[in-house]
Amino acid sequence: MANLLVTGGAGFIGGNFVHYWAKTHPDDAIIVLDCLTYAGNRSTIAGVEQAELVVGDIRDTDLVDKLLRERDIATIVHFAAESHVDRSIHSPDAFIDTNVLGTNSLLKAARAVWLDTGTGRDHRFHHISTDEVYGSLGAHDPAFSEAHQYQPNSPYSASKAASDHLVRAYHHTYGLDTTTTNCSNNYGPYHYPEKLIPLFILNALSGKPLPIYGDGMNVRDWLYVEDHCRGIEAALQRGVAGETYNIGGGEELPNMAVIDRICTEVDRAFVEIDGLADRYPDAPAARGRATSELKTFVEDRKGHDRRYAIDETKARSEIGYAPLHDFEEGLRGTLRWYLENEDWWRPLQAR
């Protein structure tokens, strides 16, 4: 039996990881540290018996120190972060506070408990980061590898780049056992409806516009969130201390292609599932019309990176990672999850 501290475990990727770890490691105890900001929800991990939620801030070094000592924790899986690029453009301070100062606070506590007390126990600090730290690719550039130069272009990606550097420094300076994974765009259940896929699903159901930045041809690598959780598991179990691994979904698509697939899947669902038209009467599909009529072009985001792509060769060869879900399967499952879990997302819309 092991005890894990999962920061941000009531959020999207962290919450999915809690569900995944509880299912695949039923004897482990999971302590979730989350301050329950707008994107953190108790309901995301409700019913996971192994998970104990501690409401608190990762910047509270004393609290983290206490949890590590009292719960005999030897593994930290660090998800907690401000992550919405648009919010970072308008209000960057919160991103520095959480992503940089918060990560440093966790590292200080981990060093104090795992190294400075002289126990010499095995431990692991795993840091979840993003492909956005690498900047933007041209149409024909090779995909991001772990050796790619950091070139963050938004306050969000700059704050994540800083946190990556701190994790690396704590390993090389103090000997802390760390690993980092840089992931591509996640999607799946429990995704807060400010990001593209859940936002467009819920807007389609409500008959609201589907706002498309610029020409809609910005390219992203799409990763089903459960595959990401499997990649983190592989890094925890087989990753080498001090190393970084890129975790991708192998599905490089322009935003417009993603939006068109969302529209197609919503239209299909209204044909295949009885009662949807009664539940969502404002959806064009409820009246036999195409969801695509909701597409609306808007002014492009400032500093909008053109293309991200992940080279996951190192993760495949060194830790045995490979995604299991293709985009069509993952998107269809994601839509079905939102249709079946209105009690989870409806209160978020009401905010």
Rank of each mutant, 00 (worst) to 15 (best):
E146W: 14
E132A: 11
E132V: 02
Y156E: 05
Y134G: 02
A162K: 08
N153E: 13
S145R: 15
Q151A: 14
F144C: 04
G138A: 06
A147Q: 15
D164Q: 03
F144T: 05
S145F: 03
Y134L: 09
S136L: 05
A162G: 08
Y134K: 12
A147N: 13
D164M: 03
E132C: 12
V133A: 13
P155C: 06
H140A: 09
E146N: 05
A139M: 09
A147I: 02
D141S: 13
K160Q: 01
A139R: 14
H165S: 01
V133Y: 10
S145Q: 09
R168V: 03
H140M: 08
Y156L: 02
G138F: 06
A147E: 15
Q151L: 09
P152W: 13
H148C: 01
A162L: 05
S159A: 03
E146C: 00
K160R: 14
Q151W: 10
A143I: 00
S159P: 09
K160D: 02
V133I: 15
Q151Y: 13
A143C: 11
D164H: 07
L166W: 09
R168L: 03
H165L: 04
E132R: 13
A147T: 14
S163P: 07
H140P: 00
Q149C: 04
P155W: 09
A147P: 10
S154C: 09
V133K: 13
P155Y: 08
Q149L: 08
L166C: 04
Q151I: 00
A139S: 08
P142S: 10
H165R: 12
A158Y: 02
